[in-house]
């Protein structure tokens, strides 16, 4: 009896774990296949955006703000963004031409219209193809997802503006925007990004 018990138990555990591991396989496979047509192979399908990085991008862009993911906007937005760095949301963020070109290349190659991801597709679907948006927070998708957040919440010292994804989405730079992990900070415990 006992020599039969163990293999049965092991078999049962294996079936269970296979089920949980491959639970929502359909969606993940879809994005993995689609990514093969894009330029990026490093896709983390567990999350909402492809997690890609570039050393120049990190060095130059993240001294002022979080590392937004290239998959948040289409290529034309990134091109315009990088061509208007002399007035980057009201600030001068000009770069050396060589560095600018490398970063533009990285952003456009991994943009939402080149590498399709779960959330990137959803944002893209609400962008008018004739428009070139620069603010992710100006897209209909963003507004719909944040319609319960009043402007006063954004004004909290610990948040500042809708541009500070990390204030509430702790995994933002890892492409994790799942609703379960949202934590809206109170002003008493500021969660400001550190270098």
């Amino acid at each position: 009896m006992s020599y039969l018990k163990w293999p049965v138990l092991i078999l049962a555990i294996s079936i269970l774990s296979i089920n949980t591991l491959w639970g929502d396989d359909d969606e993940e496979e879809q994005y993995e296949n689609r990514s093969k047509n894009g330029t990026v192979t490093k896709l983390n399908t567990r999350y909402d955006f492809a997690v890609v990085t570039n050393s120049q991008f990190k060095a130059e862009c993240t001294s002022c703000h979080m590392a937004y993911l290239p998959g948040m906007l289409p290529a034309r937005s990134w091109t315009k963004m990088m061509d208007t760095l002399n007035d980057h949301f009201g600030e001068n963020a000009e770069l050396d031409v060589k560095v600018k070109n490398e970063i533009t290349d990285f952003l456009t190659k991994n943009s939402s219209d080149k590498v399709h991801t779960k959330r990137g597709d959803k944002i893209l679907a609400t962008i008018n193809p004739k428009e070139t948006v620069l603010r992710i927070s100006s897209t209909e998708y963003f507004k719909r997802k944040h319609d319960e957040i009043s402007p006063n919440i954004y004004k909290r010292k610990s948040i500042g503006s809708p541009a500070n994804c990390l204030a509430c989405h702790g995994g933002a730079e890892r492409g994790d925007f799942s609703e379960d992990s949202v934590l809206i900070p109170k002003d008493k415990t500021p969660t400001i990004m550190k270098k």
Binding site: T62, S63, C64, H65, M66, F89, G90, E91, I159, G160, S161, A163, N164, A167, I192, M193, K194, K195
Partner: peptide, 10 residues
């Protein structure tokens, strides 16, 4: 300090 996008400036 703090940038306008709320990032710490050393």
């Amino acid at each position: 300090g703090l940038t306008r996008a709320n990032k710490v400036i050393e």
